[in-house]
Amino acid sequence: MPLIGPTQNRQGGTKKGGARRADNNRIYAHPLPVTFEKSQSWANHILGLFGVSGTRVLNPHCTGIYDPDTRSVWVVDSKDAMILWRRGFFGKGDLSRSEPSWRTRQISAKRAAAGKFMTAEEIREKRRAERKQFKLDRAAAIAQAAAEAEAAFAEGREAKSSVIIPSGATWKPQQSVPDESPSPSPTPDAEQTPEFDEDSVPDLEHMQLTLQEAFFLAWNLDCLTIIDPTTSGPMTLKHIWTAFQQVHGIPHIPSVMPEIYANRFDNPFLVNYAAYHYYRSLGWVIKGGIKFCVDLLLYKRGPVFHHAEFAIVVIPVYEDPADQETSPFELANSQPFSWTWLSTVNRVNSQVQKTLILTYVTIPARSRVSQELLSSPACLAHYTVREVVLRRFIPARMRD
């Protein structure tokens, strides 16, 4: 099932301006997979007079398969993947950069091969070729105008060049010269080419949810059922909680967690989930930020509406330094980073107009908090999150 279909027209191009924004507002109207429906019947109206709400909760009940090797949850059903993406932008297609759109791209490519329209890659290459030709034509016109000016100066006359230097606003690509060689006459079989069948393209892509996304959907929204790959049965919440921590145990043996890895408040899953839950509960859409050398990216509504406004670097901080000395985990950013690294990351995100935020997640001390709390998500109440906003001073932008 294609996931981007409503934003495309029949000729294969994308809608522009208000039409596309209206489509996005309609398609991505729900911020979470769980929706609410309020009936307008007289019975609900009468119940409302007595303070009884007639709103009904619509739970999609999606299904995913836990994969410990990739530390993710796979959503194979295209319908469930579409719901999770369009209602909160959860997950990522394994064959796509973000939205699971591999099948849609394959259909567009096959239609283009049949002569229906150009693919996005072909349009991009055409524009690049036109820009290159524009630069060559402008350079040739400038050289010709300079040669005529030099010739006029040598002859002692006024320089009046007839050369028109093209500009980006008025330049148009010249029509390609048609091939004069006789083209072969179409055969009867070519004239009767059947229409392209979309059902012939298999859907080989699945959506991948991070462990943080999967647990948020299963625990907070109760809209995701996670299947155990060994038993093919649904996992309980306690089983999910334990399995997601065990995956950070011994490498290549995710189901085994010796005593040194067990009962640790600095488990990478707990630290990363504390930061994810903090921002997601505040209404932000969260995506991975490895492209910009950070851990997370925060979107106000989602990737299809605006670019990310904030770039998050998750920094774990131990309440008790002794816990860090005995920790078997090598948490990212747990060691003091250099000024060069901080300046580099801040500069990268400033160039793309993102505000860098250092998110400090304080790990509770084992001597203060009972380790029995680690058996349930109740231990998350003992984590604290603090933020430090960094802004790079850019004189050209900040004069006002």
Rank of each mutant, 00 (worst) to 15 (best):
L373R: 07
E191W: 15
P364A: 04
Q144D: 14
F244H: 03
L380K: 01
Y383G: 01
T187I: 11
A378F: 09
C62P: 00
L342S: 05
F90R: 02
T231A: 06
S53A: 14
I312K: 01
A109D: 05
L204I: 15
R368A: 04
R264S: 01
A139Y: 12
S162T: 15
S338A: 08
R86G: 00
L221F: 07
M257G: 03
L217V: 04
E155Q: 15
Q40S: 10
G12C: 03
Y28M: 07
C223W: 00
N9S: 10
V348E: 01
L331K: 02
V34A: 10
V388I: 13
L390W: 12
G115Q: 10
S327F: 03
S161M: 04
L358T: 02
I363T: 06
A114F: 06
K15P: 02
A109E: 10
Q245H: 11
F215N: 00
T326E: 04
Q40Y: 15
I4M: 08
A332E: 11
E191G: 07
T225E: 04
R128V: 14
I164D: 00
V52D: 00
D323M: 11
D23Y: 09
D137S: 08
E319W: 09
I4N: 05
R21G: 03
N333V: 15
R264A: 05
S101A: 09
L282M: 14
K172M: 12
W219M: 10
G54P: 02
L95A: 00
V389Q: 08
Q335K: 13
C223G: 01
A274Q: 00
S72M: 15
Y318M: 03
V361Y: 01
S181N: 11
L136F: 14
I250Q: 02
W284L: 05
I164H: 09
R20L: 11
N333L: 06
L331N: 07
D203G: 06
M235L: 15
Y261D: 00
F153C: 08
A114T: 02
V294A: 00
T355M: 05
V352K: 10
H61Y: 11
N333D: 11
N272C: 07
Q245V: 14
L47V: 08
L358C: 11
H277L: 07
A120G: 07
D77K: 09
K291S: 12
E150L: 14
V352G: 04
L270K: 00
F215Y: 13
R86M: 06
N25Y: 13
D400V: 15
P268R: 02
N59R: 14
I27T: 04
Y299E: 05
S334R: 06
P6R: 06
R105V: 08
L374T: 02
T340F: 12
T362S: 04
T170A: 13
R127S: 09
I253Q: 08
A29M: 11
R71F: 15
H61E: 08
E195H: 13
L390F: 11
E325I: 12
Y299K: 08
L221Q: 12
V201I: 14
D295K: 01
E148M: 10
E121M: 10
W171M: 07
V385C: 06
M257F: 00
P6I: 08
W341E: 08
R127I: 14
W341H: 11
A113N: 06
S367I: 07
F90V: 02
S343E: 12
